[in-house]
Structure formats: C-alpha cells, structure tokens
Design a protein around this nucleic acid. Structure first.
Lengths: 331, 331
DNA sequence: ATGAAAGCGCTAACAA
DNA sequence: TTGTTAGCGCTTTCAT
C-alpha cells in the first residue's frame, strides 16, 4: 500500500479505503489508485489486516483424518455449503495420526481461525481448553471429545447398530458376527454396544468369539470373515461396523462362495453398495447433513451464542437392498 | 507476550525467546515464563509472527473441487506425505465452482501461503500471474492452467485412452462408444483424442454418434448408455472417460442385461472396481504419486528453484479384470 | 475528501 | 543473559 500511495501521491489510508471499498475517496483518485494497484499486482496482506482488526479472520478450520472413504467429501460438502453463505473460507487440515492431531490443531489455532470443526482421533483433548477459553469455538463431529466439554454432532451409532442386528434377527439369524475397527473409537464401541443389546433383547447371549474388532483394513476384515466361516460353528449373518469392513467382508464372502448364503448388514452407506451382487443392505446416516449441522453450530457460536455445550444426535436409517434379507438356511 | 512479560517481570523479547526455544535465557527465568504462559493459556499469534518474519508461513494451499470420488483422498495423501517432512501444514480449500475458484485462490493467496497446488476448474488463470511474480510458487495438478505458465503435473490422458481403446479393438470390437464429462475439461479432451486416435490407427473412422460427452453425473451417463443400446446399431464396447461415467454405464448395462455382452474399459480406477460383476477393466494412474510429485515440485520452488516451468506426465496402466476382455459376439 | 499518528503481536538487529 | 528500538502492512482514531 505504501508503494501505491507513494506512486499516486496520496496517503496509505486513502489506498486502504479504496482497496476495502470504503467511502470517502473521490472517484478520480480512487480510479488512479486502482490502476496502480493492478499495475503493481497488489494484493492486500490479510495477515496484517487480521492482526490489526482483532476479531474475525473469516476462516474456519476442519481437522480430520483424510482417508475415510466418502466420509470426507460429504462432510466437506455440508460444511462448505453453510460456510459459503457466511463468506467464510474452510481450511481443511489432515490429522494424520492422533499425535499429529495435536500439532495440527495448535498450528491452526495459532493462525487465529474463527472456529474449528474437529473429527477427533486423539485420546485427550483437554489441551484445547485454553483455546476455548480464549474464545475460539470448537465443534466435534462424528465422535465426542475426550476430557473436554464442547459441542458435538454424532450419529446414532448405538441405535443404528441395534436396527441392523434386529433386522438380521428378524430374518431368522441367531449366530450373528460383528466385524469392525478398533474398539477405542467411540463409534465402534457404541456400535458394538448396539449389537450386543439387540442380541440380548432377542434373548440371544452374545458370543464373544463372534465379535472381531480391531480390523482396520479391508484385508484384515476379510481374514476375520474367512476365519469365522472356517470355524466349527460359523455365523449365518454378519454385521460390519464400517464400510471398510463391509467391503472386506463382502470380498471374503465372495471368495468363500458364501455370498448368497450368509446375510450381511453394514454400517455406513457407500457408492456402489447397490451395484454389488447382492446389493448391500446398510444402516446409514446423512453425512452431508452432519457437516451442515456442525457448521451451523459453529457459526452460531462465532456469532456469540453462549448457551451450554450440547450434543446433537443424527438418526440412522436402514436401507434394505438384498444382502441383509437373506434368511437362515437350514440350521 | 506482553502480559507474560509483565507478570514475570522481564522483557517481551525474553518471553519471545523462550516461546520459540531460542537460547539466551537462564533456565530459571525460562521456567517461570513457561509456567505463566501455561497459566494464561498463551498461544503465540502466528499472524503477527509471519507478518514480521516476512518469509515463510509454513503453510501450502491445495485448491480443488471436493467431489471427485477418491481422487481427493489419494491426492491429499501424496501431498501430505511430502509436506510432513517439511513440517508444513497443508490447508485445503474447495473451489466449489469455476467462479468461486477465483475467490478461493485469492483469499488463500492474501493469507500469504508459501505456495499453492491447484487442480484447476476455471477457464483463465492469468489473474494468478501477479501471485507468481510476487514469488508465490504455483503448481497445477491433473489439468494444465489456462493462459498462464506454471509447473504442471498431468496424467497421460491421451496415451491412457489409446491403451484402453486399443485393448478393446484387440478383442475384436469396432463399434466402440465413448461416454464422458464435458469436453471443455482438458482431461476429457485428451482422452477423447486418444480414443479417436486409437480408432483411426486401427483403420476405423470414428462415428461421432458414438461419442457422448457432457455427461457429468452417473444418471446422465447411464441414460447415454441406455440410448446407445436402444439405437439401431448399438456399440459392442464402451470406453468411459472417468469413474462417474464408468459407474453410470455399468449400472445401465446391468439394467439392460447387457453386462456380459458389452465390453467396458473405464478411465480411472476405484475401490470396488474388482468387486463388481464382471470386475471392471480400467486404465489408471497413481494419484498418490501425482500428489507426491506435485508437492515435491512445489517445495523445490519454495526452496528457490528458478528453472523454467515444466510439465510432468505420469504414465497410465491398464488393469484387466474382466469387463474389458469380453469379445465381440457374432456381428 | 484526505491524512498523520498510533498500535495490532511479534521478531531482527543491535546494544548493554 | 537481558533489554531497547524499530518496524512488518495494515487499520483505527482523530484531525484537517
């Protein structure tokens, strides 16, 4: 700006006024200023700007692990839809690992964003209390924070799992296995709880040999299924706790030629679920809506909402497509 | 910092030294400073920091459209892998539409990032020349910039398409249709060119009635295929220009019961391609590697590489899985 | 309509 | 080991 001011022969303040579209500059000088600005390839330094006007940076952060199939895109879609109305920029940063999550969050936070959406991995978020206290709103998505009180948007993991397993039970199954990721994730724990509750409600005592968690990859999930099928009393149905295990399980069933014999209901929907053979029955929730609600909540906070932190739970719904409607064959 | 300095009774500079781990402060005072900092929930303001030390902000930008199935995750994976080594934070921002791309890029750029990776949508990037001139390195990914000279990482779209169509020709097909997105995208144009070149090289004059571009959604691609199959002289094979049209086409073939009769080779691989029936033959390139190379190039530039802008082209490879090996049935 | 001075929170450069 | 001074590029405040 100083440069421009010098060349045009006006004060920096006049340049600032023009650049920001403030009134109080004659059209003639404004014109000249804009011209020189263009000539010099001037771009306002928002670092300095935000430093001075100490309130909003117009950016919100979104921190999550880049990998969950489809989850990411849909969530961002919801968040950006809302942010767009607010002229806010969404900057996404990956929390590669639970350890790096910490660094990423602090790095973003020291950039003074207006607020942050977090899909947490880590085991302890109490270190974020300072940020909260200094007025940076935090909203947790898909999983709750640990050791920290903050707004949270969750899916009904427990209820969804119950629905899924109830559905299988209603089709005559009693030996239903569950395959999923590591149980230290909130979603996994809740889904496993729903699975057990559904069984118990039907008078079936959960058989822990049928609960195979900690399967983080397609391959691991597939092996788990293969093992189950080869066991002395194999399950007649599977409940898979996320789409990675759903896909791994499907592949394993196919390899075992059991795809039309063993029923399967998965948690999380995904593209192509209906193109598989048989099409996959899933329990799903609206991830775009989850992003939307989270962003909404965040902006409410940014706008000064001081009500106590709360938790929103999104409903799930069962989408029957075929794989979950396979009935038990002769016991 | 002023606060801390006041409470501890030292100068701001001493606090600065401690916060940044610089030497020159006695352990005793350092201790006290850290303690008060913790107490106050202090977090260094990187806005001010970056403003002062005018060089690096330690952030690079990644601007793309959030939607391309899987593309995003893999690209980010590649980019972050490299950035991690450099202790750089990758901030991703969506360019919802070609128009908004402009705004997003300028918004990021006025935040003074160290460099930007761009998967371009827009039709004219000459407005970025000013950024380049002011020393912000730009690397374009997957598609070249328009009206701007900058480093670019591309896939061999033309060669990949030729390979795909050659493959179909080698299986006896002569009426091969192409379904794809809008031809104003560089990738689509190049793939269409490869398609035509492959046909001509085999002495087949391309039939423009078999080239259905501008199909941006699964549904649109599906309808295109349905129309083709219902026409008086339907194709015996399909070449689909991206995974959206591949999926749409597959669904349409299935609905028409033509899935084992009409051959299909798609551009872009995707999860589950091998779980479909028949498993899909595709031409693919390594997207993670693309992200890796782009980031590498960007950091080279950030480190001062001043060589002329160049273009890297990644090889593609054919992955035969079944759908592309269906031979022509009796003409 | 325009500008001068002060300061946002930090660090570079130089003392002491 | 510690502090002082100046200034990053902008905006706020108050004058003119």
């Amino acid at each position: 700006m100083k440069d421009i001011a010098g060349r045009v022969g006006v004060s920096v303040k006049s340049v600032s006024r023009v650049v920001n579209g403030e009134p109080g500059v004659s059209p003639a000088t404004a014109e000249r200023i804009l011209e020189v600005a263009r000539e010099l390839g001037f771009r306002r330094n928002d670092l300095a700007r935000n430093l001075r006007q100490r309130d909003r940076t117009g950016m919100i952060g979104l921190v999550l692990q880049h990998s969950s199939t489809r989850f990411y895109d849909q969530l961002v879609q919801g968040v950006e839809g809302v942010a767009e109305h607010r002229d806010a920029l969404v900057v996404t940063a990956g929390s590669r690992s639970p350890e790096r999550e910490h660094d990423t969050l602090l790095a973003l936070s020291s950039r003074r964003l207006d607020g942050m959406l977090i899909v947490p991995e880590g085991a302890d978020h109490s270190y974020l209390a300072a940020e909260q206290a200094s007025g940076v709103p935090l909203v947790f998505v898909d999983r709750p924070p640990r050791r920290l009180a903050a707004d949270t948007i969750l899916a009904d993991d427990h209820g969804g799992a119950r629905t899924a397993v109830d559905h299988l039970i209603r089709h005559g199954h009693r030996r239903i296995a569950m395959i999923g990721a590591a149980a230290d994730l909130h979603t996994v724990r809740e889904r496993a709880r729903g699975y057990r509750d559904a069984l118990r409600a039907a008078g079936i005592e959960p058989d822990e040999r049928l609960v195979l968690l900690g399967r983080e990859t397609r391959a691991a999930a597939g092996e788990a299924v293969a093992d189950l099928l080869a066991s002395s009393s194999p399950p007649t149905a599977l409940f898979t706790g996320n789409n990675v295990s759903t896909i791994g399980a499907t592949a394993a069933l196919r390899r075992a030629g059991a795809v039309r014999r063993v029923a399967l209901v998965g948690f999380d929907d995904f593209e192509l679920a209906e193109l598989l053979d048989p099409p996959l029955t899933v329990v799903a929730y609206d991830i775009v809506d989850m992003g939307r609600r989270a962003a909404q909540r965040l902006f409410d906070r940014i706008d000064g909402d001081r009500s106590p932190a709360g938790t929103d739970v999104l409903p799930t719904r069962l989408i029957p497509r075929g794989s979950g409607e396979i009935r038990v064959t002769a016991a």
